[in-house]
């Protein structure tokens, strides 16, 4: 039942021989050791498993590997690393938008997706863009502040 699936993961070409019915989430976590993408419900209701495919946020728990062939996937591991944080990561730390951290990877990717297409979103647009990412710790206020802060950081840099 296994098939060869080729795709670009965090900028690198990957070729895997996997069962195409398995979810991207499980393959990232179990086969590729990329555990930054989280499983909060495994049925598309929480957004913790959010990754970007071709720049768009999707639930990796609802995406079979068969759909990934030829795609470009970005996970939290590809956003930035501790020595070179992405401005969103920097902003989340500075503003205090991280508490337990479980929603954070998915939240950051949803935030990246909005800033990529809308560099200076309004408060309402930011809230709308992360409405698919549940957070039980922060009450969202500081997450929204962090995304605004990152938008300004990014604008200052470009």
């Amino acid at each position: 039942m296994k098939q060869e699936i080729r795709f670009i993961l965090n900028g690198e070409h990957v070729s895997l021989n996997v069962d195409p019915s398995r979810t991207l989430l499980d393959v990232l976590r179990e086969d590729l050791g990329l555990t930054g993408t989280k499983k909060g419900c495994d049925e598309g209701d929480c957004g913790a498993c959010t990754v970007l495919i071709a720049g768009k946020p999707i639930n990796s728990c609802l995406t079979p590997m068969g759909k990934i062939n030829g795609q470009e996937v970005l996970t939290i591991e590809g956003l930035g690393d501790p020595e070179q944080l992405h401005p969103l990561q920097e902003a989340f730390l500075k503003v205090g938008a991280v508490q337990c951290g479980y929603c954070t990877p998915g939240m950051l990717l949803s935030a990246k997706a909005i800033l990529d297409i809308n560099p200076q979103p309004t408060e309402a647009e930011i809230r709308d863009s992360i409405a698919g990412n549940l957070c039980r710790c922060t009450g969202y206020t500081k997450i929204v502040e962090a995304i605004k802060y990152a938008a300004n950081l990014l604008e200052g840099r470009s």
Partner: peptide, 9 residues
Amino acid sequence: LGSRQVRNL
């Protein structure tokens, strides 16, 4: 419908 992530799928 659903979340943005769901709407992209």
